[in-house]
Write a protein that binds this DNA or RNA. Structure first.
Lengths: 111, 111
DNA sequence: AGAATAGTTAGCCATGACGGAAACTATTGG
DNA sequence: CCAATAGTTTCCGTCATGGCTAACTATTCT
């Protein structure tokens, strides 16, 4: 399983910050401008902008500037890929547990 | 949606490193000792141990020392919670797209 | 007992992350 | 044209991260 992926690195790192997760949550409801995104937080604009950049570099969001307004929107792929990575692991792990249990059952039957 | 969760912070941060993801992948196949875990990497033991600690603090793995050997194993909950967080978001996001498309369809029928 | 093994601690260094203030650019409303 | 708005750049301070080596403890093998 591909663990050497800078993509996954960036996505997980991006999601490790509560402000960035909140931005993602917010953008799931629809596109927002940078200052709309900043409203809920007690944080200076430049700091928020950094978070936006991190999210953008991770591929989780995209943004476009029209006039003086930058509009941010969520991007499906990164989030889905990340979910897929985790899902594969949970699955592997559960398969193993199943095998283990099957083994225990066989032992029981023998004795 | 709970974005102020130090648990999620730590889990995502833990998964943002390729070595730590490789450890998780490895442990999905079964418990391993610290030195078994270190084998695939060109990394000093103390460095690897730090990764193990980070994973342990995130709740992704647990470990127990018997004699001079510390055995690490995967812990289901953290990984599942993380998957759940992402899944909720992908879902929210897809619901929104569905609504949008339904809206477009209604407009089409009108004209 | 002595040597080898497994892990641990301590301390060091370079780099990157996250926060801020101040000053600047580019649009837009009056 | 001027003021207000929206975002951006620069620079700074502090703390966390990831790597190392060296030295140490605790077990286990001979």
């Amino acid at each position: 399983m591909a663990n050497y992926s800078p993509d996954l690195d960036r996505t997980f790192a991006a999601l490790s910050d509560p402000i960035r997760r909140a931005i993602v949550t917010r953008l799931c409801e629809g596109p927002r401008s940078v200052s709309e995104l900043s409203e809920p937080f007690e944080i200076a604009l430049p700091s928020l902008l950094k978070h936006v950049r991190v999210l953008e570099e991770s591929g989780l969001i995209s943004s476009e500037k029209t006039g003086r307004v930058r509009t941010c929107r969520i991007e499906r792929r990164a989030l889905q890929q990340t979910e897929a990575w985790i899902h594969r692991h949970v699955a592997t792990w559960e398969r193993r547990l199943d095998r283990l249990e099957a083994h225990v059952q066989r032992m029981k039957r023998k004795h």
